[in-house]
Design a protein around this nucleic acid. Structure first.
Lengths: 209, 209
DNA sequence: CCGCCATTGACCAAATCGGTCAACCCCCCA
DNA sequence: TGGGGGGTTGACCGATTTGGTCAATGGCGG
C-alpha cells in the first residue's frame, strides 16, 4: 500500500478505515464494492486506489489494523483495571465494557467487520491471519481470567463458560443493532450490564455480594 | 406468484425456498442475485421467474413463509410441552430447543434470513410485515412465560430478562456459525444446553434442583 | 403418437464491477 | 504573482453481472 496514507490527518484515515469496515462488515468481500466504500467515506474511488493498490490489499490492511486495535483496547482495559488494583470479575468486566464503548464510538464497524472477515468464505484471508485472531481471542480471555479473583464464585460455576455466555450475548446484541449512534451504544451497554448484574447476584457466594 | 408452485413436490418446494433463504440470509436484498439462488438450488433461473414474477415477490413470499413456519414451530413446541404436562421453565426450553433443531435441519437458512430481513435497510419489507414479526416474537415469549411455573426462581430473578439473555446468546451462536451441518447443529444445542444448565442450577430455589 | 407442462439456457439491455488516468484545485514557496 | 506539487477528483474503460424474457426442449401420461 501507499505509505502516504499514514501522513493523512488521523481523522481522515479513520474516516476511510471506518467506512471500509462498515461496508465490508455488511456483506462478503466479493459483494462489497469499492464504490460503496468511497461513497460512504465521501471520497472519490480514485483516492481509494491511490492509497491501496486493490480491494484485497485494503481488506487485508483493515484486518491487520482491526486486530491490532483489539489488542490495544484490551491492553488499555487491563492496565486500567490493574491501576485500580481491581481483581473482581464483574467490576473488571464493567471497566472493559466502558473501554469497548469508546472503541465502538471510534470504530463503529470494527467488530462486525472482524467477525465477517473471520468467517469469510473466499480465501481472501490467509490461514495465518485467521490464526492470529484466534490467538488474540484466546490469550485475552486467559489473561483476563488469570488476573481475576475467581474464589468469589459459588462452587460449580465455570468462569470460562460465563465469559463465553456473556460474549455470545454481546455478539447477539451486536447482530441485532443497525444504527450505531452514541445513545444506541449506551443502551446496549446498559442492557449488557443488566445481565451481568443478574449473574453476579446469583453466581457469587453470598459473602461477596 | 404462480400458484402452480404449490403443486410441486414438497421437497422441490423446500429445495427452492431453502436455497433462496440461505442466499438472502448472507447479504442484503439488493446484493443477493437470482443467479446465485438458482445455482444453489440446482435449477435454472428461468424456473425461478416462472413461479415468482420478480425477486421482490420471492423475497416477500419467503418472509411470510418463514414467519408462518416460526409460529407453527412454536405451536408444536407448546403442544408437546402441554402434552407432557410440563410447566418447568428449563425443561420446556429444552423441548423447544429440540423442536427448533428439527426446524433448522429442515430449513437451515430460515433464522438468519428472518433476522437479515428484519434489519434490511431498503424498504423491501413493509412496516406491516415487520410489525407482524414483532408481534409473533412478543406473543410467543409471553405465551411461553405465562404457562411456566415461575415460582421456582429465586427472588429477584426476572424470567423475561433470562429469556432475553438466552435468546441473545443463541443469536450470537447463530451469527458465528457458517456451515449448517447436522453435527454442527448438534454442537450448538449442546453448548446452549450448557448455559441453560448453569443458569438453572443457580437461579432456581434449592428445593427445586 | 400426441399434447401438455415443467424446465431449460441462450439472450437482452442495463447496471455495476475493479481499476485507470488526465486534469484539477489549493496551498506553499519563491 | 507565478509556478510547482501533491492530494483529489470524476469521467472513463472493458469486463462482468444484473433482473428478467422467451422460444425451444424433454419427458411423461393418455
Amino acid at each position: 500500500m501507499n505509505q502516504k496514507f499514514f501522513s493523512l490527518p488521523q481523522e481522515r484515515q479513520d474516516l476511510i478505515r471506518n467506512s471500509a469496515m462498515v461496508e465490508f462488515g455488511e456483506g462478503s468481500f466479493k459483494k462489497t464494492s469499492a464504490d460503496a466504500i468511497a461513497k460512504r467515506a465521501g471520497v472519490s474511488k480514485g483516492l481509494l486506489f491511490h492509497y491501496f493498490k486493490d480491494k484485497r490489499e485494503l481488506y487485508l490492511y483493515l484486518f491487520q489494523y482491526a486486530i491490532d486495535e483489539c489488542i490495544h483496547i484490551f491492553d488499555r482495559h487491563m492496565l486500567k483495571a490493574a491501576y485500580f488494583g481491581e481483581t473482581d470479575f464483574f467490576r473488571t468486566l464493567e471497566i472493559g465494557q466502558k473501554v469497548k464503548m469508546d472503541m465502538v464510538r471510534r470504530h463503529p464497524g470494527l467488530f462486525r467487520f472482524v467477525m465477517r472477515a473471520y468467517y469469510e468464505r473466499d480465501n481472501v484471508l490467509t490461514p495465518k491471519l485467521r490464526k492470529k485472531l484466534d490467538d488474540v481471542l484466546r490469550e485475552t480471555t486467559d489473561s483476563f481470567l488469570s488476573r481475576m479473583d475467581l474464589h468469589k464464585f459459588k462452587d460449580g460455576v465455570d468462569p470460562k463458560t460465563l465469559v463465553r455466555l456473556l460474549t455470545l450475548a454481546a455478539e447477539g446484541m451486536l447482530a441485532e443493532t443497525r444504527a450505531i449512534t452514541p445513545e444506541e451504544i449506551n443502551n446496549l451497554f446498559q442492557e449488557y450490564q443488566k445481565y451481568a448484574d443478574m449473574l453476579r447476584r446469583h453466581l457469587y457466594k453470598e459473602e461477596y455480594l
